[in-house]
């Protein structure tokens, strides 16, 4: 009799023990993660903002001031207030005299491993991409991540032709990625051997983003003012 009672009792006390252990450890782990998150969130946000600011100056050579604008529902640019979050944000860069020198635009698209986020500089007078920077990517180290470092690849974006047609509605020549060494025109991206998918992804991201954003920018360029 006593043996059966013991047998019956043991599983319940065991599962209680297991439950307390798992819940206890879970709570402890959650607490640790929350504490770390709280402790680092401000610094991470600050570093990311700083990295973005640095990237803006990198993709728009020769600018001295920047100002962020967002695209409102009517398709017009409005100045972005601090801590304001909007879906489409562009960063206008100005010279020391306050003239618009270029616009930094973010683009994103699927790469080989994960979504690649890039920032590129657009010169509205010359209608060229003048700079390019990868903000976020998880491409294969040593291969796909050449899109961030490879000098030949990055030289594609020093004066890339993104001219719009006469009524400013779409690109004259879509941005395309070609095989390494086969670039003949200024709107083509010279691909990387060993990083075909990643370099093609960059071409697609730029093509999509420029086709969407450049007509809007050209239409509303007078709204991008320093003050």
């Amino acid at each position: 009799m006593s043996a059966t009672i013991e047998q019956q009792e043991q599983p319940t006390s065991n599962s209680k023990k297991m439950l307390t252990a798992m819940v206890g450890i879970g709570a402890l782990c959650a607490l640790l993660i929350v504490l770390t998150y709280e402790g680092t969130a401000e610094r991470i946000a600050f570093l990311k903002q700083e990295a973005l600011q640095n990237a803006i100056f990198k993709v728009l050579p020769g600018i001295e001031k920047t100002r962020a604008f967002y695209l409102d529902k009517e398709g017009h640019f409005q100045p972005l207030a601090e801590n304001q979050k909007e879906a489409t944000v562009v960063y206008a860069g100005f010279t020391g005299q306050g003239e618009l020198a270029g616009i930094a635009i973010q683009g994103a698209g699927q790469g080989y491993a994960d979504v690649i986020k890039v920032l590129y500089g657009y010169n509205p007078q010359k209608e060229e991409i003048v700079g390019f920077y990868v903000l976020e990517s998880k491409e294969t180290p040593g291969l796909g991540d050449k899109i961030e470092k490879d000098e030949v690849f990055l030289s594609n974006f020093e004066a890339m032709d993104v001219k719009l047609n006469a009524d400013k509605s779409q690109l004259v020549n879509p941005v395309t990625t070609v095989k390494s060494g086969e670039k003949n025109n200024l709107w083509e991206v010279d691909g990387i051997t060993g990083a075909t998918i990643s370099s093609r992804a960059i071409g697609n991201i730029l093509n999509e983003s420029t086709s969407e954003m450049l007509p809007i920018i050209q239409r509303n360029i007078s709204e991008l003012k320093i003050q």
Partner: peptide
């Protein structure tokens, strides 16, 4: 992961996934 991000965005970028 959070600590590396807080130390350097660059380092976090290079270690990635």
């Amino acid at each position: 992961d959070y600590v590396i991000q807080a130390i350097s965005v660059e380092l976090h970028k290079s270690l990635g996934a």
